[in-house]
Design a protein around this nucleic acid. Structure first.
Lengths: 221, 221
DNA sequence: ATTATATTCTATCAATCTTTAGATCGTTTT
DNA sequence: AAAACGATCTAAAGATTGATAGAATATAAT
């Protein structure tokens, strides 16, 4: 085989990964799967697409070996092939944030209330959490928390925050997080908490971002 | 604007990066630009495509803000927008290598002579080079060497190796490298050198891979 | 077995992308 | 100013992809 043909083959293979992440919906599915494994119907609902379309996109991701499946009774659960896929999601999103002005603007529009954002140092935050001087609040669905969460984090899904206010201290800073920079759950939780008299801020990191930084994540294996 | 609309916008922006790297030729252009800035005609020749097509692909890369241009007389030089694009190239290639069996096979077919490949530790190699116990040979074109190269490396473009054999010692191991795992120049140089009685091996790293590992690179700024 | 549920496969249309060719634009040289 | 050259733009053909609907498949419950 000629050198040129082999080269074409090599780049074509890498482009398969590129094609897999060239669709907004597939990226959203990857981010959702970075939180925890999920069945098709749930992925479809969370990404706001039909089950059929979700299935088609997941098939592409599977052909690119980015996701794997597991059947449990009637349901088929999808999960990322391994940690490097989540790392890749973080890296392509970061690259996009760095290079696409429109993305920065859209992100800024989403979190106009910049004061909510904690620019805190990650390791310092970890230390404060360890000493119990702040409360780290995971507002994602319980199952995603179970699949892995920041150290010392307390699980309180967004929908439950209002009813479970009593569990939160008024005298300590509360730092909320959710799925990552594109997720609005932490933002909503913080808005609610501050209205109720708590000292709440949020960080943009999700578990994938946290882990991609080489920081520890609590998970049941 | 509704939450769903903003989300769609965010993922669409990231997908623009995905689309930019969803084409084999664009990936090849990125790899070429990771070596050094280059004019359109040269990129077209090295990627074995027409100037028109190269121009069209480069336009897409520019719209995704992955590359920038500079005019010098009649020529337009393209360069990567910044180092993170080269890092991204390394990361998507690694992901592809890890997940696509066909890619592994194609790569294996390319370097059937596994004995040529040095599985050496990078820092150890750096130390040996510093002490002058090995010769690190950069077989890429001179201009790419000038734009940045491994520490202590000697520039000897593949086409010149045969004539410049006298410059190389017979009693020291020679470690050749070129543009990265997809590049065949180092492989060819090693084959030639071993036939001439030298102790030559190669590493798959190029400058981008080296730098992505956080290792130092010599460059004129 | 039959039915219900979850998922995937197949077919289709519209939209998008790749590639090529011809025309155009900008810069340098004569 | 004209010619030469490099690069880009525009237009068009063919190929590929995204999204939707209907048919088919696999498992669980009846």
């Amino acid at each position: 085989m000629a050198e040129r043909e082999i080269k074409d083959l090599l780049y074509a293979q890498v482009a398969r990964i590129g094609k897999a992440v060239a669709s907004p919906k597939r990226l959203e599915l990857i981010e959702l799967l970075a939180q925890a494994e999920k069945p098709v119907d749930q992925l479809a609902a969370e990404a706001a697409i039909s089950v059929k379309l979700a299935s088609a996109h997941l098939k592409e991701l599977r052909q690119a070996r980015l996701v794997e499946t597991r059947r449990e009774g009637k349901r088929v659960f999808y999960r990322l092939a391994d940690r490097s896929v989540a790392d890749f999601w973080v890296s392509i999103r970061s690259l996009a944030e760095a290079h696409l002005l429109e993305l920065k603007n859209a992100l800024a529009r989403m979190s106009e209330d910049a004061a909510q954002l904690t620019p805190i140092d990650r390791s310092q935050m970890l230390e404060l959490a360890r000493r119990g001087e702040i409360v780290v609040l995971d507002v994602r669905p319980k199952l995603e928390f179970s699949a892995g969460h920041l150290p010392y984090a307390l699980s309180m899904p967004l929908a439950e925050v209002r009813k479970r206010l009593a569990e939160l201290p008024h005298d300590k800073p509360i730092v909320a997080y959710c799925r990552g920079p594109f997720c609005v759950m932490a933002k909503e939780a913080v808005t609610l908490l501050n209205r109720e008299g708590y000292r709440a801020t949020r960080i943009e990191d999700g578990v994938a971002e946290w882990r991609a930084q080489g920081l520890p994540v609590e998970e049941v294996l």
